[in-house]
C-alpha cells in the first residue's frame, strides 16, 4: 500500500536518508524509534513533499503511484497525512476557515461535491466533540496561542476530517502531558481501521502504550537497523539504543 524503497536523500551535501526502505500494508501501524539525528523527521518531511531536500535515489509509492513527482498538496489529496511535530501558526486565518479550505481542496481534487456550509459545520462539530475540542478553539486563528495539547488535538482533528489512507505522526507525543497524550492517542485509535495505516515516529515507549504498533523499527544513520514487534520498544526503553548501534 505505502512503500518507501531505497530512498537516499541529502540536505546541502549531507546524506540524511541512506537507502531507506519500508513497506506498510493496509491497516498496519508501524512505529519508528531512533536516537536524535537518525533521520526520522526528514523521512516524514520527504514523504509529505517538503522542499529543501534532494532526493538522490529511490521511490515513495502510495497504492502503486510514485509520489516523488507530486507537489505537497497533490500528495495530500491522494491520501497522505502528516501530523506535524510543530504545527505552524497562521495569524488572521481562523482554524475553521482553514479546515474548510483544506476540505474543499480535497473534495475538488477527488471530484467530490463540496459540502454545504451547514453540513460542513455539522461534520466539524461532530469530529471536534470526539476530541474534546470546543467551539472557541476552532474560531481562533490557526494554532496562534494554542497550547501544546490544543495544537496536537487540532492535528488529529484535521486527520479525522481529511480521511487519509496513510498517516505519519511526527513525534506527536512531544510537549504533551499525560491527559493530553491519552486524548490524542484515543483520537488516533478511533481512526484505526482495516484500510488506514500509520507510521508513528516517537522517542518514547509511552505513546506506544496507548497506540499499539504492529511493528517497531529502530532507525539509525538514515536507515532501519532493526525490526520487531511491540516488545522491541519495551526493550529499548530499558536498555537504550547502545545494543543496536554498532
Amino acid at each position: 500500500m505505502f512503500n518507501v524503497s531505497n530512498l537516499t536523500v541529502s540536505v546541502e551535501d549531507n546524506e540524511i536518508l541512506n537507502n531507506f526502505s519500508l513497506d506498510v500494508g493496509p491497516g498496519e501501524v508501524h512505529a519508528i524509534m531512533g536516537p536524535n539525528g537518525s533521520g526520522k523527521s526528514t523521512l516524514a518531511h520527504v514523504c509529505a513533499g517538503k522542499e529543501d531536500y534532494t532526493v538522490l535515489n529511490g521511490e515513495i509509492n502510495l497504492n502503486g503511484e510514485d509520489l516523488l513527482d507530486l507537489e505537497a498538496d497533490e500528495r495530500s489529496t491522494k491520501g497522505l497525512f502528516l501530523a506535524f511535530q510543530y504545527p505552524i501558526e497562521i495569524p488572521g486565518v481562523t482554524t475553521l476557515t482553514f479546515l474548510k479550505s483544506s476540505l474543499e481542496a480535497h473534495y475538488k481534487a477527488n471530484n467530490k461535491e463540496v459540502l454545504s456550509t451547514p453540513d460542513f459545520m455539522k461534520l466539524v462539530k461532530k469530529k471536534s466533540a470526539e476530541l474534546n475540542i470546543d467551539d472557541s478553539m476552532i474560531k481562533r486563528p490557526l494554532n496562534v496561542g494554542f497550547s501544546g495539547g490544543e495544537k496536537k488535538r487540532n492535528e488529529i482533528l484535521q486527520m479525522a476530517l481529511l480521511d487519509p489512507e496513510i498517516c505519519i505522526l511526527d513525534e506527536t507525543d512531544s510537549g504533551l502531558d499525560i491527559d493530553a497524550l491519552r486524548l490524542v492517542a484515543e483520537g488516533v485509535n478511533n481512526l484505526r481501521n482495516e484500510k488506514r495505516s500509520f507510521i508513528v515516529i516517537t522517542h518514547y515507549q509511552r505513546l506506544l502504550d496507548y497506540i499499539k504498533p504492529d511493528f517497531v523499527h529502530i532507525m539509525y544513520n538514515g536507515k532501519i537497523i532493526e525490526t520487531g514487534d511491540s516488545s522491541l520498544a519495551l526493550e529499548l526503553e530499558k536498555s537504550g539504543y547502545n545494543n543496536y548501534i554498532k
Binding site: 517538503k50 505537497a72 498538496d73 500528495r75 502528516l82 504545527p87 482553514f98 483544506s102 481529511l162
Partner: peptide, 15 residues
C-alpha cells in the same frame, strides 16, 4: 514563510 506554505500544502491547499 516556507513552513506556512508547506503546512497548507500538506493539507491539500496549493501554493
Amino acid at each position: 514563510s516556507d513552513d506556512q506554505i508547506f503546512y497548507c500544502g500538506q493539507r491539500g491547499i496549493n501554493i
